[in-house]
């Protein structure tokens, strides 16, 4: 019991206790989402504090029996959107949200297989950093989707309610967001040597051979004859 508790009425104490028991256990979840959204410790700190104070103020509006974590994440996501509305709008404008087509072909089978293989500890660590970068490379609304769906694992219906869009839109946007992340990740994985750039390799090898081979009339003639 905290020493200040006796200052408040019984009703206030009951509310405080209920809030501490029901909402506080989700603090870690909220903070994780906030950190991934804001990409900053101080901003995450402020965002979570605002969220919890709002949640406390509107605690009587929570419908018992529904998902408390989803309710808190809704408050937090809305706070985030409101707080950074200007920034979000600017980004959406600049990046032409959802305008970039998602190419399905960029995922080569080689890349898919390489990333499906067991990874050693070092590779895991490198990929973890690459995935964080991939998330940061997304636009705000895509990042929100990945955080809510893949990190917080909310149901599409809950996400749709938070973002105020139809479930079908959640599904298609989430697909885009994941593909964008995968594309970014594959680029990194190639740089890290976890995935081999199969096609590029072959192309450049053929090119190098041609450029570095000593000029040989014999070989040239044979190649020409072969072509005819």
């Amino acid at each position: 019991m905290r020493p200040t508790a006796k200052l408040f009425s019984r009703k206030t104490n009951a509310k405080r206790e209920a809030f501490e028991a029901e909402a506080m256990p989700h603090l870690e979840s909220l903070y994780l989402a906030a950190r991934r959204l804001t990409r900053s410790e101080t901003e995450a700190d402020d965002l979570v504090q605002d969220t919890m104070l709002k949640a406390y103020r509107f605690f009587d509006r929570f419908e018992p029996g529904t998902n408390m974590r989803a309710w808190l994440l809704k408050i937090q996501t809305n706070s985030y959107i409101n707080r950074y509305r200007r920034r979000l709008r600017e980004r959406a404008f600049r990046e032409g949200e959802d305008a970039r087509p998602v190419s399905e072909s960029m995922m080569s089978r080689g890349a898919i297989r390489a990333l499906s293989n067991p990874l050693d500890e070092a590779q895991r660590r490198m990929l973890a950093a690459a995935i964080q970068e991939a998330l940061d490379s997304l636009n705000e609304s895509q990042r929100m989707l990945i955080v809510l769906a893949d990190l917080e694992e909310l149901a599409y219906k809950e996400i749709a309610e938070i973002l105020g869009c139809p479930v079908g839109t959640v599904m298609s946007r989430l697909h885009r967001a994941r593909k964008a992340m995968q594309a970014h990740l594959i680029d990194h994985a190639i740089d890290l040597g976890i995935v081999e750039p199969v096609q590029e390799n072959e192309v450049s090898a053929a090119h190098d051979e041609g450029a570095d081979a000593p000029v040989s009339l014999e070989a040239y003639r044979m190649a020409r004859e072969g072509a005819q």
Binding site: E28, Y31, L115, L127, L135, I146
Partner: peptide, 15 residues
Amino acid sequence: RFRGLVRESLEGVEP
């Protein structure tokens, strides 16, 4: 696998 990687890479942030 990708889903698992995403989760495990982005978790582990303590308030």
